[in-house]
């Protein structure tokens, strides 16, 4: 039986449908990411799971029990908000204690529990500092520790890393996942960053315009995007239309042939560190195609305007029906 089950959730704001019949399940200890562009309904869904918003219809089950109508305080979860929502007038320690003091715990128990939590997120040295005196990463960890303070059944993370710079974000990503694994706590994280979702999650729920586009493991979502939206949203992709069949292929899967294959002209090339990104136009119909060439391959690249030949390996082609791509914006220079 699924540990947390989201069933047919629909939510409308006036005439706007934020969530349209959304369903999925989580196993105990699973880390799931809600991924999608802004306005896709992922944060609304998280707030409905938390009980901060009311769904128009649908149910949420925790361990088989319907918690749809419960007040947030009785759902027993922890949450980290995008802003962290740390109490600025309390030190890291006091922020953790605020929740614990309210439950009838003994002083010794509270102290021990806080020390444990601070240890867990490596904050013991700064426990008596106020949030404004902490770095962004430290604040984020206080928020995480506070969310875990009451031994929640599950954890909700709302874009927890979006306010941090790239280096810190990468490090904290690992820390969050390690902590989650250590506690084996069921976790739902909302993010709009596909790289973050791919690296941290057990499974990803890709959402668009209030609907679920695909639910799968990161690898499957990347390699076998269920529809053009997912293909386009996650990673780079080329769409090539032929006889009302759309073929999609990732730039790194296109080979440059010495001669033979499809003829194209190099329009632009840029160095991206690990690879070169080439932009070609097909001779046949002038469609623009992105191709990635690993820089380690050390081949001699043609100059802009020169002719070259490319190959689409058949096993890497993903086929869609043409109408599915109508709402996908075509790549252009």
């Amino acid at each position: 039986m699924a540990y947390l089950k989201i069933q047919n959730i629909t939510k409308k704001f006036g005439g706007f449908t934020a969530l349209n019949n959304v369903s999925f399940e989580l196993e105990k200890g699973e880390f799931l990411c809600l991924l999608g562009p802004s306005g896709c309904g992922k944060t609304t869904l998280l707030r409905i799971i938390a009980g901060l918003e009311e769904p128009d219809s649908g149910n949420i089950f925790l361990n088989g029990k319907d918690i749809t109508n419960l007040h947030p305080s009785s759902r027993n979860f922890g949450i980290v908000f995008q802003s962290y929502a740390l109490f600025p007038n309390m030190t890291a320690y006091e922020n953790l204690a605020f929740a614990l003091k309210n439950k009838k715990n003994s002083k010794g128990d509270i102290k021990k529990r806080i020390e444990n939590l601070l240890n867990l997120v490596n904050l013991t040295p700064v426990k008596h500092k106020y949030p404004s005196q902490l770095s962004g990463g430290e604040q984020q960890r206080v928020a995480l520790a506070r969310a875990l303070a009451l031994n929640p059944d599950f954890l909700l993370l709302d874009e927890p890393l979006s306010a941090l710079d790239a280096k810190v974000r990468n490090r904290l990503r690992i820390e969050i996942r390690e902590t989650q694994e250590k506690l084996n706590i069921t976790t739902i994280m909302v993010t709009h960053d596909q790289e973050e979702a791919l690296t941290i999650a057990d499974r990803i729920v890709v959402m668009n315009e209030g609907r679920i586009m695909q639910i799968d493991t990161p690898q499957a979502v990347y390699e076998f995007p269920a529809n053009p939206f997912v293909a386009d949203f996650i990673g780079e992709i080329n769409f090539i239309e032929k006889n009302s069949i759309i073929n999609a292929i990732r730039p790194e899967n296109i080979h440059i042939g010495q001669n033979g294959g499809i003829e194209a002209t190099l329009r632009h090339k840029e160095f991206r560190g690990a690879f070169y990104r080439l932009t070609l136009s097909l001779k046949e119909n002038n469609q623009l195609i992105k191709v990635d060439i690993p820089s380690s391959r050390k081949i001699i690249l043609p100059e802009n305007g020169e002719k070259l030949f490319i190959e689409f390996p058949i096993e890497k082609l993903i086929n869609y029906k043409s109408e599915e791509t109508s709402n996908i914006k075509k790549f252009s220079l």
Partner: peptide, 8 residues
């Protein structure tokens, strides 16, 4: 459901 609600 009701039992849980009452508990809450």
């Amino acid at each position: 459901n009701k039992i849980k609600s009452l508990m809450h």
